[in-house]
Design a binder for these strands. Structure first.
Lengths: 345, 345
DNA sequence: TTGAAAGCGCTACCAT
DNA sequence: ATGGTAGCGCTTTCAA
């Protein structure tokens, strides 16, 4: 008894229930008009043949796929599955499915956008960089886009992000107040918007404190690049810097390991190290990172809400929601006031 | 000049190019017959109006959505980003899109399956547990399923997995050879297939070595549960066990931290700790876990290939591909022979 | 409340 | 090689 038979359609159900096909459609729609008796017969017939509405066909006629695209790039300092899982769940609760796209090389972007356009997604969340032409394509198609943790200079597109600059300002401020004099930075990839903001935020605050001439070595968000970065810094100077500012937690951890293992330095006694993100490994006892935690849950919820609003009403103007991070004193840096984690002002 | 106008269809293109609609369709199909001159005119017209084939409509007629569902549960000890990103990329290279579903509570499973059925996915990869009824639903719909790192006892469904038992056998074997006498286990969640295999694999090997009466405390794959697990173990015995076997790396790390911080024990001098997974944090210098690395890349590629084969030919019998892990000696356990990582026999 | 009929945008088959 | 035509499975008027 092969079940390989074609899937049951609304016509099959209609025939069995002895009603019209449109009646079946109505029964499976939210607030449609259908008598109790008919609804019952239809549902029975449907159960009998294992009928289930075809979302693809529905999308064709309603012009709504109920799918959104989520774009991530590996270089995205995706602070973990967290973001992806939470986005997916939040969308799922609102009856929206997530189509996942990864962008490995910048050159793939156009084809990815092409793909999601072909799949008629209702909206896009991107944690990867999108260039002008691609944005215009989406805009032209009337597909709302929300940037996650990145924003366009001209604010012409909606975005949800953590205030990277503010976070770095807090870190640098605390380090400065604790008397650190010489600083160094391990940045993320040059094409990472997040890294650029963090790095420049730190540099700006340092400048305000009268500290310039801060060496910056580039990493790629990986543990190894954190280790390598610190080694590089040690080649540049006779003595280690008082403080190293890493563009994310994983590199901060690599940096600490290199300082300890390769150079026999104690953290934070000989050198302070700070990171950014505040998830997972930051709390490992061997590191207890001084860092800034992103409010991931609030951010993902805002993202979903913002996108859904714009799917409902495409004329809503772009909006940018910036979330403050939480300063985590940790124990990888000498700070003036060891306190509880606190929301940044 | 509002671009909010409806999207261009193949009819629009046909009109402009002065050809039939079916001609347009053919031009956008792989190996279809079309003269150079026509192809050129059509492509020009298409570019002019920004035409792009509607994948949804195509799916409706071809009965192929070119989408597969990927199911993950948060409790899945997925070496997450890795697996998900690699799966997505591998599918993407084959022209397949990934629809992502998360299963948080077991009770959500039926509705998730219902969803992916409605979306007419061509196949399913699941890293979450699927119960019998759901499997039958998928089977009845002719949708192939590949399990990732879990398998059904009766082998009636395709699966790709790492040989958890073999990995644990290696770990236990090495620990035994190095003279460890008393053991303890920190398992994962009871409903995690991976944890069950790892735990029972370790226990079996221990039994072979004549070691029974091994305390098992349950964790949830998290760092905190690793710490808590070790504390629990210390409550049960006067002395720490010679070796603790954690069901994953993150718990092993928590375990090490607790041993060091709360009990002043040295690892691996006072207590050996081993994990499983071999990704990311396992290599942090503060831990250098003795663990087993899963060949994630080979596994994800096998998964994609196996699923695609079954989408092409639904009559292919279920197949199970089991990959050997790589033993990573690390430095969190006293081993008889400190060597390079090596593929397990 | 219910049914008939007209598409949504595409592919596939059949003639030409 | 090209065009006409018939659907894929559904929602949505519009009458009855």
């Amino acid at each position: 008894m092969s079940k390989r038979s074609r899937k049951a359609t609304s016509y099959d159900v209609a025939r069995i229930a002895g009603v019209s096909q449109s009646a079946v459609s109505r029964v499976f729609k939210q607030g449609a008009s259908a008598s109790e008796s008919m609804r019952k017969r239809v549902l029975e017939a449907a159960a009998e043949v294992g009928y289930r509405p075809n979302a693809i066909a529905r999308g064709l006629i309603t012009q709504r796929s109920n799918m959104v695209a989520v774009l991530i790039s590996r270089m995205t300092n995706l602070n973990y599955p967290e973001v992806l899982v939470q986005l997916t769940q939040a969308f799922s609760e609102r009856g929206i499915r997530v189509l996942l796209f990864t962008i490995e090389r910048e050159s793939e972007t156009p084809s990815v956008v092409e793909q999601l356009l072909q799949y008629q997604v209702d909206g896009v969340v991107t944690a990867a960089t999108l260039q002008g032409p691609q944005l215009e394509l989406l805009d032209g198609a009337g597909i709302p886009v929300v940037f996650y943790n990145r924003s366009l200079r001209d604010g012409r597109v909606s975005a949800v992000r953590c205030d990277q600059e503010q976070g770095e300002r807090w870190l640098v401020g605390e380090l400065g107040a604790a008397g650190h004099q010489s600083f160094a930075i391990i940045s993320g990839p040059a094409d990472s918007a997040v890294s650029v903001e963090r790095t420049s935020g730190a540099l700006r605050r340092l400048k305000e404190l009268g500290i310039t001439n801060v060496p910056v070595v580039q990493g790629d968000y990986s543990y190894e690049s954190g280790r390598h970065g610190f080694a590089e810094l040690m080649k540049m100077r006779a003595r280690p810097p008082d403080a190293v500012i890493a563009a994310n937690d994983v590199m901060a951890i690599g940096c600490i390991d290199e300082a300890r293992e390769a150079f026999g330095l104690a953290v934070p006694v000989d050198v302070s190290v700070v990171g950014f993100d505040g998830a997972g490994p930051a709390a490992f006892a061997a590191y207890r990172l001084t860092t800034v935690r992103q409010p991931v849950e609030r951010m993902t919820h805002a993202t979903v809400q913002m996108l859904l609003e714009r799917i409902e009403d495409p004329d809503l103007p772009p909006e940018e929601r910036v979330f403050a991070g939480t300063g985590v004193p940790g124990a990888s840096a000498r700070l003036p006031s060891p306190e509880e984690p606190r929301t940044l002002p």
